[in-house]
Computed example of a mutant assay.
Amino acid sequence: MPEDQIPDVPPNHLSIDPRSAFYSEEVLRRDVGIRFNGVEKTNVHEYNVAEGWVRVEVPTAKDRRGNPMVVKLNGTVEPYFRRAK
């Protein structure tokens, strides 16, 4: 999709994990910000607006493969693009 036709609204479901079906490098390049329950979150790994949840990193925990552990939190999710194009 040409850059001038990219919508100004982030997708409903997005993940930063390249193995996920909801990963989109084009969207992530535009610098997506997340407000969760009115608070800016910088450690979001995945979100879903329609279902109202985010997966955030637990800072000190790793899984058995060395990946950061994530916790699913429910609430109001507001994605937005930080930089205006």
Rank of each mutant, 00 (worst) to 15 (best):
D17P: 07
S15K: 02
K85L: 15
A84N: 03
E40L: 15
P10Y: 01
G52S: 07
V49E: 14
N67V: 14
R55W: 01
K62N: 06
D4R: 07
F22W: 14
R19E: 14
E25M: 04
N67Y: 05
D17Q: 03
P7W: 00
E51A: 13
V70G: 04
S24H: 06
T60R: 02
N12T: 09
R82N: 11
A50N: 12
S20A: 07
E46K: 11
A21R: 11
T42L: 14
R65H: 09
R65L: 14
P68W: 07
W53G: 13
P68M: 05
D8L: 12
H13P: 08
V71N: 03
R30T: 00
R29K: 12
P11D: 13
L73P: 03
V39K: 12
N48L: 01
I34N: 15
V9D: 07
E3F: 02
N12P: 06
Y47R: 02
N12D: 13
D8N: 08
N12F: 11
E46Y: 07
P2F: 08
A84Q: 05
P79R: 10
A21F: 14
S20W: 05
N67H: 08
R29G: 01
R64S: 15
P7A: 09
P68F: 10
L73H: 11
L14I: 06
E40I: 15
S15C: 08
E57D: 03
A50I: 05
Y47L: 04
